[in-house]
Design a binder for these strands. Structure first.
Lengths: 126, 126
DNA sequence: ATTTATTGTTAAGCAAGGTTAACTGGAGGA
DNA sequence: TCCTCCAGTTAACCTTGCTTAACAATAAAT
């Protein structure tokens, strides 16, 4: 399975719900991402086949990240926080900042993201 | 027609080929964007129905931007130049910088792009 | 115990944006 | 004149990632 924007959003959603100490069931992901239940069902199947997460059948079907999935999710989340905070600091309203962070976070290579973050962080220090 | 990333790439390609003083026929766009001829044919039909460009039947089927198309194309091109130059100045190689600029340019609102450009330009002045 | 609500899955289908294969039509060379 | 090449279109199809409708299974409530 090729990991695309959609897949990245699913694992990130799992991480965020988990951090909020909320239940992480398919239906919660659907609500969080604003998609239908079958979409989540389909995504879960693909992502579990690809080893990014699994459904814990023994524990009320909670969705859990694998190590591989967690690495990806943390990377997306880190980017999300960075871009949304940066955009907000530039005067973009919170909602817009979150939406755009959500799109930018998927299109950058590691190198470019690191370079941008270093640039912004250094400027903000001064 | 909703203008998406793909549509933005087509009008931008027309602008760039035009700036390079090259022929702008469907087949040139296909080569530039690395897509097949039928893809271009389909895109041209949609974009001309939506008023972004037209095929000049009286002039060897050259593809021309309408005013509306030109506005969009210039906006994309401006973003493309900004991001690719910025990334290169951060040490990203030219090819990667161009590829990533090509993706970032489509995901930002006007407000966010302006804010980012102002931030970067100011830092680089100091 | 039976009904009801919640959760997840299956099936069928749609839209966007690609692809290849096959066709048409015009321009230039032999 | 005929043949060939080039450009563009049409048809059929694929993939991704959604959707709605219908259904199954389980838990909770009366």
């Amino acid at each position: 399975m090729v990991i695309r924007e959609s897949a990245e959003n699913y694992v990130e959603a799992v991480l965020i719900l988990e951090k909020k100490n909320e239940r992480v069931h398919s239906v919660d992901i659907a609500k969080y991402l604003n998609v239908s239940k079958p979409s989540v069902s389909y995504a879960i199947r693909n992502l579990s086949e690809a080893g990014y997460l699994y459904m814990d059948e023994d524990n009320e079907k909670q969705i859990k990240l694998t190590d591989k999935g967690r690495v990806l999710a943390e990377r997306m989340y880190e980017r999300h926080l960075f871009f949304s905070h940066w955009l907000e600091s530039l005067g973009i309203d919170e909602k817009t900042a979150a939406e755009e962070a959500c799109r930018i976070e998927h299109v950058l290579s590691r190198k470019s993201f690191d370079a941008i973050r270093t640039f912004v962080t250094q400027k903000n220090k001064k």
